[in-house]
Simulated assay, not measured.
Amino acid sequence: MLPLIYPLLSGAAGVTAIIGTPPRAFRHGSAPQNVVAPYVTWSAPGGFAENTLEGADADVWRVQVDCWSDIDTQVETLALAVRTALEPAGNLIAYIADEQDPVTKRYRISFSFDFINAR
């Protein structure tokens, strides 16, 4: 039902070269306390059912993916690897953030993707 983000990330050599194997990639938009950077978080904050008269039904999920690192240049490399891993399965629709968290001082680059899953 939900898009299979973790398998896409864990199957991408460019991603795992940066965030490890198994990849430090976490659902629900948050990482565990004291996680080592770099890592990826994602959540599915919205979506809708696509229903047609022909019966070709699907679910469209909007997924936010956040790349995190303690190093500015590394977060850029990670974001490119994540985008490369996810674009064959989903449509990149927005760049959300390119910032440094004021509390943790970690750098973040964030995207929104739409994934269409047939039912």
Rank of each mutant, 00 (worst) to 15 (best):
M1D: 10
L2F: 00
L2H: 00
P3W: 03
P3N: 11
L4E: 08
L4D: 10
I5H: 03
I5R: 02
Y6R: 07
P7V: 00
S10G: 03
A13M: 07
G14M: 05
A17C: 09
A17T: 13
P23W: 06
A25D: 02
R27D: 00
H28Q: 14
S30F: 15
P32D: 10
Q33I: 12
V36F: 01
P38Q: 08
V40Y: 04
S43L: 10
F48H: 12
F48W: 13
E50P: 01
N51R: 15
T52L: 13
L53K: 10
A56L: 11
D57W: 11
V60E: 04
R62N: 11
V65T: 05
D66E: 13
C67S: 11
C67W: 04
W68C: 05
S69L: 08
D70L: 08
I71G: 02
I71P: 03
D72K: 15
V75P: 06
A79S: 12
A81V: 04
T84C: 01
L86G: 00
L86I: 01
L86V: 02
E87N: 09
E87W: 01
A89G: 02
G90L: 03
G90A: 15
I96N: 10
I96R: 11
D98C: 04
E99M: 13
D101V: 06
P102K: 07
V103I: 11
T104E: 11
T104G: 11
Y107G: 04
S110Q: 11
S110E: 01
F113L: 04
F115R: 03
I116C: 04
R119P: 04
